[in-house]
């Protein structure tokens, strides 16, 4: 149990650091980087529920992020509602998408799910990019000036920072609960072997679908907060493939299927991305692709388990070797 209290202490320290960070480094630039980091961690943690714990690698989570981002600006455009009122609608659309993609593909094992998610996300991006009611290639915009507190248009970036921090805390709290629950055990078991899991009574398809819906709902909420903050979304920023790829890289870099992995991944990748963008200019330029490509190569080459796994193993090297047992002998 000493490990548990050490982990709790680590989380408390991290939470305290996240809360005081914008007060210690109060410049608009630092708050913006912090907000970007929190958004990356929150979306990666949401992706982690289906891609990490359940091992079903979605390459199309942009469809949920995009649904979450478009709906607030759509309800503003159509009815002049405060954009945040679109958040629940984004979640509903995302849940429908999750069921449509998950139902047919979770019957099958292997890469069908990954391929279906890429295909559907790209299809949606292409359709949205030509749909006039959704602003086509130009995209949608929120209110230029806030009409009241519910428009959530703040001059300072500070409220958004704490909004994203609250979202990240919610996703992590849900993941923590999930890890300890029956559903969490079932997801980890089916990631290892669907056949063995089913032999123990695990309803594999239902569990995968539940995990995807949970993951989609949080990703959508993140997309909505993003749209409320920026007051703008277009097919690239809401539904582009980079949106999906970033979630995978952040989660896998830190360690997919762990609670801290997505946070660690964001702590590494976002400052790096900010540095390259600042010194070489141009966000979303070819450089982002090079950075992501490099990260993928590193993950694939050295550590399929992510950096967290590397840390655990390094720690294992220095720990006392466990007493070897009769059990480790192999069959004749």
């Amino acid at each position: 149990m000493r490990n548990a209290s050490r982990a709790a202490f680590g989380w408390l320290a991290l939470a305290a650091g996240a809360i005081v960070y914008p007060l210690v480094l109060p410049g608009a630039f630092y708050i913006d980087v912090g907000t970007t980091l929190l958004l990356a961690a929150a979306t990666a943690a949401a992706w982690n529920i289906i891609g990490g714990y359940a091992g079903q690698v979605s390459v199309g989570h942009a469809m949920f992020f995009g649904a979450g981002a478009y709906l607030p600006l759509l309800v503003y455009k159509l009815w002049q509602w405060p954009p945040i009122a679109g958040l629940p609608f984004g979640i509903v659309v995302s849940l429908v998408l999750a069921v449509l993609v998950g139902m047919p593909t979770f019957r099958l094992q292997g890469h069908y799910f990954s391929m279906a998610t890429i295909a559907v996300a790209e299809l949606i991006r292409l359709v949205v990019a030509t749909a006039e009611p959704l602003g086509a290639a130009i995209g949608l915009q929120g209110p230029a000036v806030g009409r009241g507190v519910w428009d959530l248009t703040f001059r300072s970036g500070l409220p958004y920072y704490y909004l994203f921090l609250a979202l990240l805390a919610m996703v992590l709290a849900t993941s923590w609960w999930l890890q300890r629950s029956r559903l969490g055990f079932y997801l980890r078991s089916l990631r290892a072997s669907e056949r063995a899991a089913r032999s123990l009574g695990v309803p594999v398809r239902r569990c995968k679908l539940l995990a995807l819906m949970l993951s989609a709902a949080f990703t959508s909420a993140a997309g909505s907060l993003y749209a409320v903050k920026t007051g703008f979304v277009d097919p690239e920023s809401g539904l582009g493939i980079l949106v999906s790829v970033q979630m995978i890289i952040v989660a896998a870099l830190g360690g997919a299927g762990t609670l801290f992995g997505p946070v660690l991944g964001a702590l590494i990748l976002i400052p790096l991305q900010t540095l390259t963008n600042t010194y070489f200019g141009g966000e979303g330029s070819g450089l982002t692709y090079i950075l992501y490509g490099g990260a993928i190569l590193l993950i694939a080459r050295f550590e399929p388990g992510g950096l967290l796994d590397l840390v655990y193993r390094a720690r294992g090297l220095f720990a006392k070797p466990a007493p070897s047992s009769e059990q480790s002998r192999h069959a004749a």
């Binding site: 980890r188 078991s189 290892a192 063995a196 032999s199």
Partner: peptide, 10 residues
């Protein structure tokens, strides 16, 4: 199972 299938990471 004849060839055991355990959940390796658990």
């Amino acid at each position: 199972f004849q060839v055991p299938v355990t959940f390796e990471d658990m």
